[in-house]
């Protein structure tokens, strides 16, 4: 009787608390194209992103913006907004991670940033310089929001370009749909660490290997 009762309580508590476990769907979607910038010595100096926002968010972002010509949004008109964008992105580590082996590279403040308005969509372009240029055999780049507030998708065509990379560098792109592991997770293989970074499996992963 008591067991039944406490079961009912747990059920009830579950129903009440459940909605907070679920996550909201992303209200912003971004199609990402990036360039990996190399120095002449073959080290990576930074990443240049061009992020295209979805039309709903773009319309929202430019609402009420003062422009010289009505309906035309120039880079200059959008400059204050671009500033707000890069400033707020800092808090989210630019939704970008770069790993050389086990080491996580650190980024400096973004440079050369601007917004453009093309086909009713905003495109944010900015360069993330690496604090220390990375000269590694393998660099793994990920663009995603682990909280899934912003849905990042890699562009279909050439999501990453290697600019000035040594000839022996090869690029491999992994999109979430492709990288979804086929195996089922058991508690055991979850706990023994093999799948400790399970969530990262769903990230947009770009691997550059230089042999």
């Amino acid at each position: 009787m008591m067991r039944l009762f406490s079961f009912a309580i747990v059920l009830l508590a579950g129903f009440v608390a459940q909605p907070n476990d679920a996550q909201a769907h992303p209200h912003v979607s971004v199609t990402s194209t990036s360039e990996l910038i190399y120095a002449t010595d073959g080290s990576v100096t930074g990443i240049r992103h061009a992020w295209t926002f979805d039309d709903l968010f773009s319309a929202y972002a430019i609402q009420g913006l003062d422009t010289k010509t009505k309906g035309v949004y120039t880079r200059e008109d959008l400059a204050p907004l671009a500033q707000v964008n890069v400033d707020s992105l800092k808090e989210f580590a630019y939704f970008t991670t770069a790993r050389s082996g086990a080491r996580k590279e650190k980024f400096g403040d973004p440079v050369d940033y601007f917004l453009e308005y093309k086909d009713s969509k905003l495109v944010l372009t900015f360069t993330l310089p690496l604090k220390v240029p990375a000269k590694t055999q393998e660099l793994v780049l990920e663009v995603y929001d682990p909280t899934y507030f912003v849905a990042f998708a890699l562009a279909d065509k050439e999501p990453l370009k290697l600019v000035g990379a040594p000839a022996n560098c090869k690029l491999a792109i992994q999109k979430p749909a492709e990288s979804k592991p086929q195996q089922t997770l058991s508690e055991q293989n979850f706990l023994n660490g093999e799948n400790a970074n399970y969530g990262a499996n769903f990230a947009n992963r770009m691997t550059v290997a230089c042999q």
Binding site: V10, G14, A17, P146, T147, N197, Y198, N201
Partner: peptide
């Protein structure tokens, strides 16, 4: 249940890869 709810939700600033698995 509440603690579970609190832990499952992370503020924007603190990314938890596990969240995207959900």
């Amino acid at each position: 249940a509440l603690v579970h709810a609190v832990v499952a939700q992370t503020p924007f600033g603190a990314p938890r890869p596990a969240a995207s698995a959900v």
